[in-house]
Every structure is written in C-alpha cells, then in structure tokens.
Design a protein around this nucleic acid. Structure first.
Lengths: 113, 113
DNA sequence: TATACATATGAACACATGTTCATATAAGGG
DNA sequence: CCCTTATATGAACATGTGTTCATATGTATA
C-alpha cells in the first residue's frame, strides 16, 4: 500500500508560509489584540462605545482607582484606540476608531457560543 | 453663569453602567482577545486559516521548537479555537471557528491605518 | 496666590506568561 | 519487542504586566 504522505515538503511549507502575513503585521495585530486582552481596558472601551467620559467617571464606573484608569488610558492612547480633549480640569476620553465596535461584536459572537 | 456640569450624576453613571456587558462576558471576551494577543498563537491561527497542519509542520513554519508549539496549541485547544484529530503518529490541527477570520480581518484593517 | 480638584506618572511589587529543557506518552516499522 | 518518530507535559526560568502608593502637574476658584 502506498504510504500516505502527511508531513509537508519544503516546497509546500514555503507556499503556506507565503499565505501568512508579514512579520511586522503579525507584530502589530498581536499587539492590538493584546490591548483588548485585558478586562480593565476592554471594559473602558465598552463604556466609551456610546459615551465620552472623563477619567473620574470611568474610575467610578469600573469601581477602580483613578491611577489605575489613567495608566490604562495611556496605553489605549498610545495604541490610537482612544482620543481625548481637555475641558477645564477634566480630560474627556472617547473612541478613536470605528473598527473597535466591529471587532468587539465578533468577539462577543464567539464567546456566546 | 450657570455651572456646566461635566462629571456625571450617579443616576447617569448607572445608566451607562447598564450598557456595559455583564462581568462574566467581559471576562470571556478579554480572555479570548488575550489569546489572540500573542504573536506565536496568532501566527499559528493565520497558518491554519487555509490549511490543516500537524505539529511539526507548524513548528517548521514558525521556526520554533516543537515543545513551544505544543504548549500554545494546548491553549488554543482549551479556548476552542482549534480542533485536532490523530492520524497515525501525527496530530492534525485545524481551525474550530469561523469567527476567527472575521475578527482577524478587522484587526488587520485597524492595523493597516 | 493659596487651595482644592482632576489627571498623570514613576517606582515598587505581586503575579502572569512564554520559552526551554528534560522527559513522558503514543504510535508505527523493523 | 525494540527503536524511531511525533506529540504532550511538568518544572524552571526570565520577562512582561497591572495595580497601588506617593507625588507631580495642570486647572479653576476663593
């Protein structure tokens, strides 16, 4: 009986390799998801889906210290996921990107299975 | 001049709180994204988008040790992101879910801005 | 300008995470 | 049966991460 070849040849491996996104893209995508992969941050983003909020209100909503929220907002800022404007003493944060909702919806769908 | 109220009242905060998904959902969604938030894992998933692959071939593709790949596959298994079947000595892994591609596409879109 | 309020930030700490190494388990071939 | 190949797994280790605490910065108001 002819042996069934399971392990791929080098040529086949190279063809598959070509279908995988470039290294830099993999870095950026995993970096993006890493940011979503924290409960505090994703809760902040969900809260901002429909409302612009100042830091203290976010801290109240999540029942967390203002400092912890500030640290996380800095991370979200650096990833261009939120934007902000100063209004008097307060700083109002809002979402920077429309993809976020779509990504979350897909995540929710997967989770709800 | 009437003071402009910026900070939200407790009532308003509660209304916003109601729009945020339940705690358990936030746990699950952040857990899901946390899994995507690792370059090795997301590369494995990209490779599996179009092909079923055995462990060694995945290790070759990523140029990583078999052990590291096995550990990551276990995590992907536990999250129901991949499924597997044993074929002789080999174990063939494939994607378990169709949402994955959609989520990745959105992630790529965000990154490519 | 002194004080209070809102936010940001650095250091420290505890905890989580990913890889490696060694080895166990599983299966097929001689 | 023994040997080789394929995969899984536990322990150890180094590194990364999120929160807290203390404090700095920025802004308004008395």
């Amino acid at each position: 009986m002819a042996e069934e070849r399971i392990t791929l040849s080098e040529k086949e491996l190279n063809q598959i390799k070509d279908t995988i996104p470039a290294d830099i893209v993999l870095d950026n995508v995993s970096e993006l998801f890493k940011i979503f992969g924290d409960k505090t941050r994703i809760t902040i983003l969900f809260a901002l889906l429909d409302h612009s909020l100042c830091v203290n209100d976010i801290a109240s909503l999540l029942d967390m210290q203002q400092s912890a929220i500030s640290h996380q907002l800095r991370i979200l800022k650096q990833a261009h996921l939120v934007k902000y404007k100063r209004v008097g003493r307060e700083v109002i944060y809002s979402l920077a990107d429309d993809h976020i909702k779509t990504i979350f919806d897909q995540g929710l769908e997967h989770v709800e299975e």
